[in-house]
Design a protein around this nucleic acid. Structure first.
Lengths: 277, 277
DNA sequence: TTTTTTTTGAAATAAATATTCCAAAATTGA
DNA sequence: TCAATTTTGGAATATTTATTTCAAAAAAAA
């Protein structure tokens, strides 16, 4: 028994978060990991057995029980009941919320509401209209490439950053093409035929990225493009391109659907590579 | 064993309802009651033990088990797993059985589907749980700042990039803090009291960003933090922080909801500034 | 470094939970 | 009505699941 015997642990999920936050720092490393896991996966804790949960959290069952006790509960079972409580009376997912139809009474539409709806609609649209074949082919080419070069500016740059992060995490070699326009062109000319350019470009289109695509195509380097419409200059050329269109809200376009597609593409490619195919 | 040995019972909740309706009339009276109870209280079945459930349904535990068997399941435990499935927001990749509904179509679409669903769920969660007051206060502080400094590494870096892009587009001065840890600290020490640090940090947490936050707080510089949970080291300090949690799919977290919140924050701040308030 | 303390995982144990069995009750068919 | 059949509940059993224990490993202190 370590501590926290004085005050009782919370019996409702909403109070559990601050409680955990208070005690987090005084926990050992492994138990801190469990704390993070618990807050991030409440539904897993609510619905599974210690064995299953601890496997997912990458700890042993003992650690799971220990965690429950060290934050004040009688045991795992006791703690689990609090997580289960959070799932009761929760609006069920199978009650399909029609995205566009949402706001019933609340006349006051918050900005967050607007952007959320736009994001959800964009993702739904991506899901429905995405070219499965194209994603298939693109991930295969990415998986086959020795090095992945990433190009994109402006609104596409966060996508490049995210893809770079994800590829590296997956153990794939990825390089971001940045710097001055001329320097980027120079770097691009060094790309080998067994490597690949993944170009991301959105409206308003900059000539720069198109230029890099042209250089690669001339040199026989494979190119995969990610754009917001076939009107994009880099989709003109007859090569592999994926399309994702973000819904606009008062002149602003988000990146929610784009990020979703990017992650999907990266993971798919990573999977393909580890499968050796 | 009474019947239904020929065709297998459904493994997903959505198919369970019609299945139950089909077999309802051929069940004994007491088991019919249980069937009605099950359809009306799926969450009770998902979250409790036979003893508790059968008490609520006003039958004995034996009857509960018999019911599960008579509609084709191996036992109560087997049937319960189907009810639990209905409560998970995202179909778990670890879920053993893809047997029943495993789509013979393209596998790629399934992966996209998973990530899309996770993204939508995350956005919905953000919308429901977001602290409107906190967003309000954060955007006000950002609007008031002469210059906005952005810090974030790893998975947070794309968010930094996107915010920088958006702020600049809105005509607000924004600076990305990057480079070596020591250089970042030096830059941070130059931040003035009428400026602001917008720090983004996700699990697994790096000490670095926390350090920058500490420097600012000591110097009396306003800090707004964006994290994935209150366990984040930068949420520990008593200052303004926003929370956004991305649903995980086979170990990968997207950025869809985060990007949505980031855009919201930036636009809200921009609006506030042009309104001169 | 060495010692002491804390933390951790594997195996053993305890507790609970689901399942089976069987006799009693209810239902059905003559 | 009475016998045959089905259905049901309670108790016994088997299985699963949580918990505890203890020695090894790791971390902290000396």
């Amino acid at each position: 028994m370590t501590a926290f015997e004085a005050s009782q642990p919370p019996r409702v999920y909403s109070q559990l978060k601050p409680w955990l936050q208070d005690h987090y720092r005084s926990l050992p490393k492994r138990l801190q990991n469990v704390a993070v896991f618990a807050l991030h996966n409440p539904e897993v804790i609510a619905l599974n057995t210690v064995a299953v949960i601890s496997a997912q959290a990458q700890v042993t069952p003992s650690t799971m029980v220990r965690f429950a006790k060290s934050i004040g509960y009688e045991g795992f079972t006791d703690m689990q009941s609090v997580f289960q409580e959070s799932m009761r009376h929760v609006p069920q997912p199978y009650s399909q919320r029609l995205t566009e139809l949402a706001p019933p009474s609340e006349f006051e539409e918050t900005v967050l509401h607007q952007f959320s709806q736009a994001a959800r609609a964009s993702i739904t649209r991506l899901e429905e209209q995405a070219d499965g074949q194209a994603i298939h082919a693109a991930s295969a080419q990415i998986a086959a490439a020795r090095t992945i070069y990433l190009a994109g500016q402006g609104r596409a740059e966060p996508v490049v950053t995210y893809l770079h992060y994800t590829f590296v995490k997956l153990g794939m070699q990825a390089v971001v093409l940045d710097g001055m326009a001329s320097a980027m062109a120079d770097k691009t000319r060094m790309i080998q035929p067994d490597e690949l350019l993944l170009a991301i470009s959105f409206s308003p289109y900059t000539a720069n990225t198109r230029e890099l695509v042209d250089i690669c195509l001339k040199a026989g380097v494979k190119v995969v493009a990610l754009t917001d419409s076939t009107l994009s200059p880099i989709a003109q050329v007859d090569d592999l391109h994926l399309e994702v269109l973000e819904q606009e809200v008062s002149g602003f376009r988000g990146l929610s659907a784009t990020m979703c597609l990017a992650l999907c593409l990266a993971v798919e490619a990573g999977k393909r590579r580890t499968e050796g195919q």
